[in-house]
């Protein structure tokens, strides 16, 4: 073969390359592309996010007739061992008063809720989740919300759930790691289970008679939370009408339930949250992430609410890798 014929080979090779590699240059819609970085971090302002593509999803009410929710902007990065997902959404209030004790001048009353952000990933290949999203699985394909039982139809279908909570988990820098399976018993109302833990977790801040709080934060009565070890006994002489005392004493879970580190910051009318987890925790109750393998997922947003009162990504989202 002559040297002058090399251009032919080059052209033929280029055609092959172009044809074989034909694919979208940009991320398709509803795709969250995780980019490789040196080291992930829960710092939402870190430089690692600069080159991570943003994808947005307008959340829709999960419950028929309820109001739709905020638009959530997502980004993802990963390193050799962990993945970090950054979520940002508008919220007019920082809802931290989940199950707090409120003093009306005569008695204590409990109440209140919190903001939450959750992500659901199938733990194995699942066609139904991949094509219909977490709504189809978690809601048992039932449009009547009174019939929801938050679980899967098939014992082989397990969904990993990360739920960050502004009051219950954010102060201790983790997101509650749980999973959905089938109903454990015929009388169960949910298929949701918490991941295994070896300790930690929140404890109720209840007085012995259960009619009020037992502790306050040692830093003062204005504290939004009480961390384990920072509680001091309540001094009723310092309590005035309208006082609000956190309803729990918080400590992060250890074990699989505490796998997901999280840091949410509320400022300027929005939450910015970063969740970090190992790609493979080695725990049976966690999804395994393999960079290069796309994973379907869904998100849920709870605005000062819990249970069915939330909004979800209406389409299946895909976690892709770059």
């Amino acid at each position: 073969m002559k040297l002058s014929q090399m251009p032919f080979l080059f052209v033929a090779g280029s055609i092959m390359l172009a044809a074989c590699a034909s694919g979208p240059a940009t991320s398709p819609p509803n795709t969250l592309t995780a980019v490789k970085v040196d080291a992930v971090s829960t710092d939402a302002a870190a430089s690692i996010w600069a080159n991570a593509p943003k994808t947005t999803t307008v959340t829709k009410a999960a419950k028929k007739g309820a109001a739709d929710g905020s638009t959530v902007t997502l980004q993802a990065v990963y390193d050799g061992t962990s993945i970090a997902i950054r979520a940002e959404w508008a919220d007019s209030t920082d809802s931290w008063q989940r199950n707090v004790w409120k003093y009306d001048g005569a008695a204590w009353k409990r109440g209140g809720d919190q903001d939450r952000f959750s992500m659901a990933f199938p733990m194995s290949n699942n066609a139904e989740f991949a094509s219909k999203g977490c709504g189809a699985i978690c809601h048992n394909q039932e449009t009547d919300d009174t019939k929801w039982w938050m679980g899967t139809d098939n014992a082989d279908t397990k969904i990993d759930l990360w739920q960050w909570q502004s009051a219950a988990t954010n102060p201790v820098a983790y997101a509650d790691d749980a999973w959905w399976g089938t109903k454990p018993t015929i009388t169960s109302t949910t298929g949701r289970r918490s991941d295994a833990n070896t300790g930690g977790g929140a404890k109720a801040n209840n007085a012995a008679d259960g009619k009020g709080p037992a502790f306050v934060n040692k830093s003062g009565l204005d504290a939004h939370y009480i961390l384990a070890g920072e509680e001091v006994a309540l001094d009723m002489s310092k309590i005035a009408s309208g006082a609000v005392i956190p309803g729990s004493i918080l400590a992060p879970y250890t074990g699989s339930r505490g796998d997901v580190a999280a840091k949410g910051v509320y400022a300027d009318g929005k939450w910015v949250l970063v969740m970090v987890r190992k790609l493979n925790t080695g725990n049976e109750d966690d999804a395994v992430f393999t960079p290069s393998k796309p994973v379907p997922f869904g998100i849920g947003l709870f605005n000062n609410a819990g249970d069915i009162d939330h909004t979800i990504s209406p389409d299946v989202l895909t976690l892709a890798w770059k």
Binding site: G13, L17, A21, A127, A130, S131, K293, T318
Partner: peptide, 24 residues
């Protein structure tokens, strides 16, 4: 040609969509 195929395989993994869902 084999080098080109290896290069393509390494830089852009052979695609695998999500599992087939006949009800989709």
């Amino acid at each position: 040609m084999l080098a080109i195929l290896i290069f393509l395989s390494a830089t852009q993994r052979a695609p695998l969509e999500f599992p087939a869902d006949p009800a989709s």
